[in-house]
Amino acid sequence: MKIKFYLNKKEIEIEVDPTIRLIDLLREKLNLTGTKEGCSIGECGACTVIVDGKAINSCLMLAYQVDGCNVITIEGISEDGKLHPLQENFLKTGAIQCGFCTPGMIMSAYALLLENPNPTEEEIKDAIAGNLCRCTGYKQIIDAIEVSAKELKG
């Protein structure tokens, strides 16, 4: 099946087997290995990417379903080599330990700030409740998102 979609702001056209998952398209076919697979059943959130502005688990979406969509992965949020404020603040607040949940976590945060530039702590927690992290206890991640929201508002 031939599909056409925007991936990290670039339009691509590709032939996909309709029964593979989006995560496999990204990791195996397109070599975008920033998106991680932790559970394959939509519980850990490591595979989170953004499809048409919404955070989704790429292990639970079929590759062809992004036909005509706008897909953003961790590889697509910094511009001209400049880190996105979320990335910058994940560094500064110590929101990263092993880093395996980080791409998915940042994508959930990115989707949150697209929809809600002014989130409360509770809203941040809700937005990342589907992203499991075993290292950080979440606190520094929540801080990073709070600071980023403030910066992005200017």
């Binding site: 920033g34 961790i74 590889e75 910094s78 110590g94 940042i106």
Partner: peptide, 14 residues
Amino acid sequence: IREDAFDKVTGKAK
């Protein structure tokens, strides 16, 4: 800031 953090926030860490 961690030495490996840049790679980890950009998805480059292998």
